[in-house]
Each structure stands twice: as C-alpha cells, then as structure tokens.
Amino acid sequence: KTYTFRVRIVDEETGEEKEIEVTAKSEEEAKKAAEELKKKYPNLKVELE
C-alpha cells in the first residue's frame, strides 16, 4: 500500500505557492521526504497535508 501526500511549498521570497505530490510507503517516509525538501530549499515553507 502506498500513501500519496500533498506537500504545499511556499517560496518565502516570491510568495509563490506550489503543490507537489509525494508518494510514500508510510507517513514516516513522507515526513522524511518533506524534511529533505526543507534541506534542499531552505527558504521554502514546506507543509505536509
């Protein structure tokens, strides 16, 4: 079973919002993916929905 999570990304500089879908095998995995995004884009606000 896989879970699909919507991750909302807000670029703090431009105020631009993007939504991406993360497919993960567990909620834990999705959280890790969101953390990776935060590391990659430090000025983005990442929200897991």
Rank of each mutant, 00 (worst) to 15 (best):
K1T: 09
K1A: 10
K1Y: 08
K1M: 09
K1V: 09
K1F: 09
K1W: 09
K1L: 09
T2I: 11
T2Q: 10
T2V: 12
T2N: 11
T2K: 11
T2L: 14
Y3A: 02
F5I: 10
F5L: 07
R6W: 14
R6G: 01
R6D: 00
R6Q: 05
R6T: 13
R6F: 12
V7F: 14
V7G: 01
R8S: 04
I9N: 00
I9H: 01
I9A: 02
V10D: 01
V10N: 03
D11T: 02
D11I: 05
D11L: 03
D11V: 04
D11R: 01
E12F: 09
E12T: 12
E12N: 08
E12G: 06
E13S: 12
E13H: 10
E13A: 12
E13Y: 08
E13N: 11
T14M: 02
G15T: 01
G15W: 03
G15N: 03
E16L: 09
E16M: 09
E17Y: 14
E17P: 03
E17Q: 09
E17K: 06
K18W: 15
K18Q: 12
K18M: 14
E19A: 07
E19N: 09
E19H: 14
I20C: 13
I20Q: 02
I20A: 01
E21N: 07
E21Q: 10
E21C: 14
V22M: 07
V22E: 00
V22K: 00
V22D: 00
T23Q: 12
T23F: 14
T23E: 11
T23D: 05
A24N: 02
A24R: 04
A24D: 01
A24K: 02
A24P: 00
K25R: 13
S26I: 01
S26N: 11
S26T: 12
S26M: 01
E27N: 06
E27I: 14
E28K: 08
E28A: 10
E28V: 08
E29T: 03
E29N: 03
E29S: 04
E29F: 04
A30M: 08
K31W: 14
K31E: 07
K31T: 07
K31C: 13
A33D: 02
A33S: 05
A34E: 07
A34Q: 07
E35H: 07
E35C: 10
E35W: 11
E36D: 10
E36H: 08
E36N: 08
L37V: 04
L37S: 01
L37E: 01
L37I: 12
K38L: 10
K38R: 14
K38N: 05
K38F: 13
K38P: 02
K38Y: 12
K39Y: 07
K39A: 09
K39E: 06
K39R: 11
K39C: 08
K39W: 07
K40F: 07
K40I: 10
K40E: 07
K40Q: 10
Y41E: 02
Y41A: 03
Y41G: 02
Y41I: 03
Y41M: 04
P42V: 05
P42L: 05
N43W: 11
L44S: 12
L44P: 02
L44A: 14
L44Q: 06
K45L: 11
K45P: 03
V46F: 12
V46I: 13
V46D: 03
V46L: 09
E47I: 15
L48Y: 13
L48F: 14
L48G: 05
E49Y: 07
E49D: 10
E49C: 13
E49K: 10
